[in-house]
């Protein structure tokens, strides 16, 4: 019996796992890179004067305000047109990381700014240098304060990573689209994909609340 469509079977699990893995890996890359860059920019913005801030701010505003899917398409089309197309993973990682950075920098900036000047003066009055005060006081207190927001951004990055499928990256959504076109079983597959995102996100947010309570200051 030869049909154009073949139903979902266990032999598809390899493809699905590849999709899962690719989703995880690009999310991790974006969260790590975005966090590191966001931390640096967030700190720089909390320290710097209005001019520098406005300059930084407008770039970040663009990254935050233009829909991710448009950024992905624009970026990959642009580098493609320049004659040296990037692998979907590379292009996707760059765009998703910068997008994450834009949100993380605001998160961290508000964290640094939440540490009162008088707290810092108290630290300096003990003889601590500026950098010791930053490292031992401002950083740990600021990071604790923004942990919930950091987790929120991270979780949405995991979900947003599905959009990288539009530039051909074989993450979970894209693999499932391929399976759907072959099996014509969209309902089962999309429900499965949805459950997968839930399985990643829910424990993380739950764990986040636990950590938050533990760190409560």
């Amino acid at each position: 019996m030869n049909s154009l469509f073949t139903p979902l079977s266990w032999s598809d699990s390899g493809l699905i796992l590849t999709g899962v893995w690719n989703t995880v890996i690009i999310s991790v890359v974006a969260i790590v890179v975005g966090t590191v860059l966001g931390l640096i920019i967030g700190f720089a913005r909390s320290e710097s004067n209005k001019m520098v801030n406005a300059l930084f701010g407008s770039v970040l505003d663009v990254l935050r305000s233009v829909p991710l899917i448009i950024q992905l398409i624009l970026f990959s089309t642009f580098v493609g047109a320049m004659g040296s197309p990037l692998a979907p993973f590379v292009a996707g990682s760059i765009v998703l990381s910068l997008y994450t950075m834009a949100f993380m920098s605001e998160v961290f900036r508000s964290g640094f700014e939440s540490v009162s000047p008088s707290m810092q003066i108290a630290a300096r009055s003990l003889g601590m240098t500026k950098w010791q005060t930053i490292y031992h006081i401002r950083l740990p207190i600021g990071l604790r304060a923004v942990f919930p927001s950091w987790l929120g951004v991270s979780l949405s990055v995991i979900k947003d990573s599905a959009l990288v499928s539009v530039i051909g990256y074989m993450e979970l959504l894209r693999t499932s689209e391929q399976l759907i076109s072959r099996t014509q079983q969209p309902l089962e597959i999309l429900i499965g994909v949805g459950i997968f995102y839930f399985i990643i996100s829910y424990p993380l947010s739950h764990y986040g609340r636990y950590v938050e309570r533990k760190m409560a200051i």
């Binding site: 008088s118 003066i121 108290a122 009055s125 207190i141």
Partner: peptide, 13 residues
């Protein structure tokens, strides 16, 4: 010069 302020500014973490 040890200094103590009106606000105690304990390091909360």
């Amino acid at each position: 010069l040890g200094m103590v302020f009106q606000q105690w500014n304990s390091f909360p973490h």
